[in-house]
Amino acid sequence: MSESIADASPASGGPDQAYNYAYLDEQTKRMIRRAILKAVAVPGYQVPFGGREMPLPYGWGTGGIQVTAAIIGREDTLKVIDQGADDTTNAVSIRRFFAKVADVATTTSTEDASIIQTRHRVPETRLREGQIIVFQVPIPEPLRMLEPRETETRTLHALSEYGVMQVSLYESIARHGRIAKTYNYPVLVNGRYIMSPSPIPKFDNPKLDRSPALQLYGAGREKRIYAVPPHTPVKSLDFDDHPFEIERWDECCALCGSRESFLDEVIVDDSGKRMFVCSDTDWCERHQR
């Protein structure tokens, strides 16, 4: 824990007494837990919840933070990543926030974490039973871009009328010769609900399928929670003759040499020299050893 945070804590070693444990009051946490239970019971279904004002703006993970706050306990170990990295501003501030208000241990190790809050990635290390991954979701409704009316999208979900989603994939092939969507790639959960996996690269979609970990998704601005319980089938939509495929690279990671992880392209100098490195910093460090 850094100096400044320790200074801010009136009772060192315990949570900040100015707030309730994990920031939200107990009533709110209970309400969110009920929403989570319902979401787990109906995989992929978006459950509305009474989202609270959080001490950071919408778009910075308010949905994910509320979900994490509702489930976290003192015995948990929290990892927070943003685009796969543990060391970005967003990841660091959320990690410190919970260290301060929930008195939890934090880690950058995927293996060691009991709760992983993430923005835009799923860790490369295979998740295990007992872990919970919390996704920050900007737009929970996968049909939103195709159908602007909320009443209509709800009806489409209720009746499993998903022709329009397939229409958007058809259109992509007609225009680009292949399904050009590379992130936020829609999935069908448990053969029933179409779900937005949040803006993770489609590279990560296969990790959602029958994952042993519990997946919780929180959208703060739109006040929706949805979930995928452990071992639930999650299928990426496709066509028989244009099957779902993940990204591949000719290069390997310039730092750790990994050929199996999601690579970020980084420009390293003014002459445009590029290198490819793992997006998952924990994975990359582990492989450099």
């Binding site: 329009v164 958007s168 259109e171 066509f239």
Partner: peptide, 23 residues
Amino acid sequence: VSAGANIGERLMAIGARHYGDIR
């Protein structure tokens, strides 16, 4: 969306999943 997608929508809505056939 394109004319093809407009015509294909009903087929996809009732389960057609072969792009080439729909097209």
